[in-house]
Structure formats: C-alpha cells, structure tokens
Design a protein around this nucleic acid. Structure first.
Length: 483
RNA sequence: UCCCCAAUAGCUCAGCUGGUUAGAGCGACUGACUGUUAAUCAGUAGGUCCUUGGUUCGAAUCCAAGUUGGGGAGCCA
C-alpha cells in the first residue's frame, strides 16, 4: 500500500471531499456488528466528535478486525462518504485496516459507558482518551494560548520567574525544600542545625510560591510583564480547589494604580471567557451537557440556577461589581444569614477576615455577579501592599467568582522605600535577604500594580468542573503524586 | 490539619435489627441478527465483601485502629 498521509478526524468531518480515499488513525471507542457489516467508532483527540468506520465483511476479512476492541489503536484507509445513517454527517468505508495496538478487553479499564470522575482520576494515564478529559485538555490548551495572546497583543513581556527560590518573602504558605544534602546524615553546624552552606546553592532553597516579587523587578524596567509558570505550595490542603502544584498567571504593570489593575483583571477574565466560547464551541457544548446531567443527580436546592454557557455569558456581559471591604462588612453584618446566625463565622465588626461562606454569599446571593473587593484592613494582607491614607487599609483587590470563590488576588504595591521598610519590619519580613526588592524602591521607583490568577481555578469556571484535580492532567496534592 | 460520609464483580451500586449457597444493571466473553449509533436478543464466566485486630456458636453486616476516596472547613490561587 502506498503511504497515504493521515488526516485528523476534525479535518475529515469538515472536509466534504466525498469519494476521496483517506487514512485515519485513532483509538477505538466501540465496535459493533452483524454478519455482513461492522461499525467502529474512532476518536483521535483532534475533536470531541468521533468518526464512524463502516466495515463491509465482504471487503475486509472478519479475522482482520477480530482483535479490535474498545481502546485499541488502528490505522484505517478507506473512502470518505456522506453517511446514509443518522447521527453523523460523514463516515469512512474501510478498504484496509491495520491494528496498531490491541487493548485486551479483559484488562482495559475504560468501557463505553459513563465512568465516575474519581475512577478516572486513578486512571490519569488513560483518561485523555475520554470525552470529558479530552474536552478539558483542549480547552486548557486554548486558555494557555489565549493568555499569551492577550498579553502579547497588549505589549506585555513574558517573564520566566525562577522556580527555585532562596526566600520565603511572601509568606504565601508552606514551601517545598530543594536540597541535595544527605537527609540521613546532613552536615551540621556546631549548634546542631543543618548547615545549608554545604548545600547546592550555599543556602536554603525552596520551590517558588509566587513569581510576583521577581515580576515586579522586571516591570520596573519593562513596564508591562507577566509570568505564567508553575507554583508550589506544601500546605496540607485537601479541598476541591487546591493543588500542591498549580499554574499561576501574574501580570505586573508599572504606572498602574489599583483601578487600572482592576480594569485589566476584568478585561482579561472576559477575554478568556470569550476566547473559549468562540474557539471551543463543541467542547463547551459537551461539558455543558455533562454538567447538566450531573446536576440532575443533585438535590433541587443544590443545583446551579444557570447552565454552563449561560454562566459564562453572564460573566461576559455584566460589569463586575466593585466594592470595598468596609461596604461588604456592612452588607454582611445586616445580611439574613448573619442575623439568623446561619454563618459559621458571624460578622461582628470591622477587621474580621472574610470566610468563603461570606464570599459566596456576596457573589451568589447579594450581588449575583463577580465581585471585586478592595481596601482590606492592612493587618490581614501582605506586606508589599500599598497602605491607604487612612493608615488602616491597603490597596488590595480580590476578584470573587461564584462557586470557586477567590480567583484573583492583587494589589497596588508599596513603592515608597521608607513605608515599605516600615511594613516589612512590622510584619517580620527579613529585610536583609530582600535587599534587591528594596533597591527597586530606592532607585527610580514608580507606582505599580499586579495580580495573580490561579489558572486551574479559571479552568474550573470555564469547564464547570467541580474538582480542581480534573482540570490538570496530573494533579499533585497531599499523598497524591502517582504518574 | 479538623468535621462528616463512604469502601461489596472490570464499572455503578443493592444487600434489613448478625444466620449458613453473595445480588442487580452496565461492561467482558460466546452465539444470533443486511446499516448500527453507549445497537438489540439469548446464554456464559467473573468476588481476599479495603486492611488488621476484637465481640460472637456464627461477621459483608457490630466495635476499634489504620489505609484510600469523596463532601465541607482552615490556608489560599
């Protein structure tokens, strides 16, 4: 047989070149048949849609397809035709079939039926072959691409912030230590502590918890930059919205104040949603249907009032509510659940930290749209945030989304050397280690702002997936690093 | 890390206040069927009832600890 170039299923479905001989390769979803004809449903991951292969058993010998079962990989050459059956537009009349790899039906775990997401999580090496995870993976790629496109079109520079860091400046959580020292027999100082001077970098090092501080350095020279890299938190978090290894987008802009920062955050979120709607209609339609089926198994009161596409359009077509911490505390204090003591944590007075039940009340019940909260008490926020003139609040902003809560956290940064130094001392941030950060405020400092977007949380919102472990190929979480 | 729930066939699950031989649907396999759509119909095989210990004449079932998974909380993105 002449070497015929393989065509992807997505191109075959859109081709319309009926009568043409084509080659298609992929993985078998189902095979069914009778005495004279058999049908193979094939998918190659290029689209959510499958292509149907028609096998005339007068043309192809039965023994040639006997070993084809769900999960097998095949190469099929045949004629692309308009399908006489309902359910698909095109199909392929097979002329030659080659089995590339069998999948023993006694052992292959994926069946042509609905599997639970929990089961598929344990089969992370094979779940790429499912409709749901295929759709998620394609949408994930589209979002990665859209993020780079968004910032590139705006003249931002992508910065590779370091993955191995020497400081725990931000205090954003427990860190993973990076070391080459012998853990059984480490070199010790005289006082019995580990001597990290003998370690690879000559000091204690960890995996990064944020690229923000480094992004700030770059912004104070290139104006507009962003990072998009892996982030590591050794927090023992066991929830459906936390990972030990996740991807974060952190833009940092010189000459931006907190309002410019919010404008950019809202524009970016809407851009990403629009990009998904425009570029992933089939995958989103599938995910929407999947979510609808899942919701049917829930109790009435727990069901989402909107379906996926509606939810996306709702965010896209509405201005985010912009409000302040002080206003929000007032709303919460006078809210029904607070007065009826339905909140686990009752809001008593100004200064209290917002719990997720409060954030969800604001987004889902009170404002009924994404909310941006600014001007938090300085005591509950990070040292680098710019203190307001009231000396009580900082120019922080959190973007709260329905169901997932905080999707973005950002702020205008403190650009004044003396005020920053004062805040670092108040909050016990090691100023000696941070000499380089402080120097940017000493030499040509400018007002600047930035924020962090948790990429997987964004993915949860776009795809409607409830568990963050289903929107990343190989989730890393406590007690969970298989694959 | 804390609270709650669960673990039974390849998958999803039923199995009552402990009772002797462990159940269904789907999947797999075999056969039938002239174009099916997660095909249909008939039949067959398939079990360390999560692990360890305890209570009992007797444990899938009760108790304890552990493991794993799920939901919620904290931490946060």
């Amino acid at each position: 047989m002449d070497k015929l170039k393989r065509t992807k299923i997505i191109d075959l479905i859109n081709s319309g070149e009926y009568g043409k001989t084509v080659n298609v390769k992929g993985w078998v979803r189902t095979k069914r048949g009778s005495k004279n004809v058999a049908f193979i449903t094939l998918n190659d991951g290029s689209t959510i849609h499958n292509i149907q292969i028609v096998v005339d058993l007068n043309v192809i010998k039965e023994e040639d397809i006997r070993n084809i079962s769900t999960g097998a990989s095949v190469s099929i050459t045949g004629e692309l035709i308009e399908s006489p059956g309902s359910g698909q537009k095109v199909e392929i009349n097979a002329k030659a079939i080659e089995v590339l790899g069998e999948a023993d039906p006694d052992e292959y775990p994926l069946q042509p039926k609905k599997h639970s997401l929990e089961f598929l999580r344990e089969k992370a090496h094979l779940r790429f072959r499912t409709n749901t995870f295929g759709a998620i993976t394609r949408v994930r790629h589209a979002m990665i691409f859209a993020i780079h496109k968004f910032f590139n079109d705006k003249g931002f520079c992508n910065i590779h912030s370091p993955i191995i860091t020497g400081t725990d400046a931000e205090g954003a959580g427990e860190m993973f230590r990076v070391t080459v020292l012998d853990l059984i027999n480490p070199p010790l100082n005289e006082d019995g502590t580990v001597n990290f001077k003998e370690d690879f970098f000559g000091k204690e090092t960890n995996l990064t918890v944020s690229g923000q501080l480094e992004a700030e350095l770059a912004a104070l020279g290139l104006s507009d930059v962003y990072t998009f890299g892996p982030t590591f938190r050794a927090e023992n978090s066991n929830t459906s919205r936390h990972l030990a290894e996740f991807w974060m987008i952190e833009p940092e802009m010189a000459f931006y104040d907190i309002n410019d920062d919010m404008d950019l955050a809202e524009e970016m979120l809407k851009y990403l949603i629009k990009y998904a709607i425009d570029n992933c209609p089939d995958d989103l339609a599938f995910l929407s249907k999947r979510l609808l089926d899942e919701e049917k198994t829930k109790k009435q009161e727990e069901r989402s009032p909107m379906e996926l596409k509606e939810k996306l359009l709702f965010v896209l077509n509405n201005d985010f509510e912009r409000t302040t911490y002080t206003e929000v505390i007032d709303i919460l204090k006078n809210s029904k659940p607070n007065k009826k003591k339905k909140f686990r944590f009752l809001i008593e007075e100004w200064g209290a930290d917002l719990q997720s039940e409060h954030e969800r009340y604001l987004v889902e019940k009170h404002y009924k749209k994404p909310v941006m909260v600014t001007d938090y008490p300085k005591d509950i926020k990070a040292f680098y945030m710019k203190v307001n003139d009231d000396n009580k609040t900082v120019r922080a902003m959190d973007v709260l989304f329905p169901q997932i809560g905080e999707i973005i956290g950002g702020s205008q940064r403190e650009e004044n050397y003396n005020r920053l130094l004062k805040r670092m001392r108040e909050m016990n941030v090691p100023e000696k280690e941070m000499w380089w950060y402080l120097e940017t405020r000493k030499f040509g400092t400018v007002p600047h702002s930035g924020f962090g977007l948790g990429f997987e949380r964004m993915m949860q919102f776009i795809t409607g997936m409830g568990n963050i472990r289903d929107v990343i190929p190989f989730p890393r979480a406590p007690q969970s690093a298989e694959f």
